[in-house]
């Protein structure tokens, strides 16, 4: 099952959605201490929990031996996070448009779209050692 690991700016969780609330508490406290406006905290919390859900379900396929690592940062007037999983990667360009008429009533498929809408920058990278790493930033 594994333990939740924390440092000052990083939290690492086993791949279970039971831990999403812990991630939210960690990131909201981290941002609040740094006086990030509440509205921005909410946007970052929505985006980060969205990406952590994806990392757990689609990246690590809920394999609790695999971890999701969330690192928060604040620099150059921006706040953000990197969310990394240990999965096999995916093609962000292959996600169907969730606001297309034929997809509107689908229960899933809006996560990345919402993240892109709320954040100023979203970057996907696929490290050689494997997994997907998403970096999001929001201007303050």
């Amino acid at each position: 099952m594994g333990e939740i690991e924390r440092t000052s700016d990083t939290i690492r969780i086993p791949s279970s959605t039971d831990h999403i609330a812990v991630v939210d508490e960690f990131l909201e406290e981290w941002l609040r201490i740094r006086r990030v406006p509440e509205d921005t905290i909410a946007d970052l919390a929505i985006a980060i929990t969205e990406l952590v859900n994806n990392a757990i379900k689609h990246g690590n396929k809920k394999n609790q031996a695999k971890k999701v690592t969330i690192r928060l940062f604040m620099e150059n007037g921006e706040a953000g996070a990197t969310i990394a999983d240990e999965g096999t990667g995916f093609d962000p360009g292959a996600i169907p448009d969730p606001v297309a008429e034929e997809n509107l009533m689908k229960e899933i498929g809006r996560g990345i779209f919402i993240v892109r809408s709320l954040m100023d920058e979203v970057e996907f990278s696929f490290p050689p050692e494997g997994g997907t790493k998403v970096t999001i930033t929001k201007r303050l």
Partner: peptide, 17 residues
């Protein structure tokens, strides 16, 4: 409800459908 992510929206759609 302070906020929800796409999981919450998916639940609303599922309930509606």
């Amino acid at each position: 409800v302070e906020w929800m992510n796409s999981t919450g929206l998916g639940i609303l759609i599922s309930g509606l459908t």
